[in-house]
Design a binder for these strands. Structure first.
Lengths: 172, 172
DNA sequence: TAAGATTGAAGAGTCAATCTTT
DNA sequence: AAAGATTGACTCTTCAATCTTA
């Protein structure tokens, strides 16, 4: 695969996903969407950790988080162990109301795109994407020295997408 | 795979490719790089056809093409069959060097990323990406009603693109 | 009329620098 | 010093509108 193909493919993938995203949550800025995804299944994260996991610049994450807080989708508190740090997390009641969205965003578009292929091929391709995703995630995790993430993966109670904002929307 | 994962993965893929691209051609804008890739192994294309194949807006392609022309990497002539149309193509002497350049940008980064996997897995994953690439290309081709390509439609040559040298050398 | 060149506004992001706070 | 909030300049891109011309 050529570099140009990689770039093009990446764009197609992202654009396709963005389209799907806007169909479900037209008002949510991309960065907030991505950060939210990162927040949902994890223990409270610092801004820096979120930056390296999402690939966004620190300033971008900072802004996105404040947007999420305005929406009532996330909360922050300062790290008791280190007052300079901000811990960001999704409050339980939001977490619980999010299933519908997460479920509905399960890769339909990709299946449609691959409609011409056999089910086995489709599955293989999507499986490969998942593995690539993991590889990128590992890379992102390595980039961040231990400091960033708080260890334990928390007994996750389903991952849901908030449907009812607690506060005002706006932003963006 | 969740929508957010698809977006994130797409971004990683594109950013990774972009990094690789800038290492080889720091001065070339992304859009020109992508359009060039599209131009290299195909018969002369109209602006509109390039737009639908690359996924860029018409205005963007128009600008990118004029950038390529300024660089001497592409040429345009008007379609003898329809004077309104601009046919864009890569002159033979450029084509040779450009191919070498493209070859040199054969994605190493992906292999590095997957270094932890077995060679077989690596190959499978990259193969899956190639297939996904094809699927997206087919989609892009469908979007463009017959108008797009001029002269010969040129049947799909699969992932492997023609290596046939077109003409002279020198330049660059 | 349709293709494409051109332009201006707006969005989304980066980068780099600065300021505040712990 | 280091985390993060904030800001400004810049880049890339889209979109929509307009102009030119075959």
């Amino acid at each position: 695969m050529k570099t140009a193909d990689m770039v093009w493919l990446g764009r197609r993938l992202a654009d396709t996903g963005l389209l799907e995203m806007r169909a479900h949550a037209p008002e949510v800025p991309t960065a907030e969407f991505i950060v939210m995804r990162e927040l949902l299944d994890r223990p409270p994260s610092t801004i820096t950790a979120l930056a390296s996991r999402t690939g966004y610049a620190q300033s971008r994450v900072s802004t996105a988080v404040s947007g999420l807080v305005n929406r009532g989708w996330a909360q922050t508190r300062s790290d008791p162990a280190d007052g300079r740090r901000t811990l960001v997390f999704v409050p339980g009641h939001i977490r619980k109301n999010a299933r519908e969205f997460q479920t509905s965003t399960e890769t339909e578009t990709l299946d449609q795109l691959l409609a011409g292929r056999s089910p086995a091929r489709r599955k293989a391709i999507i499986g490969a994407l998942e593995e690539l995703l993991d590889a990128f995630r590992e890379q992102a995790a390595e980039e961040q020295p231990g400091t960033g993430t708080i260890t334990q993966p928390e007994p996750d109670t389903a991952t849901r997408w908030p449907k009812a904002p607690t506060a005002s929307a706006s932003a963006n």
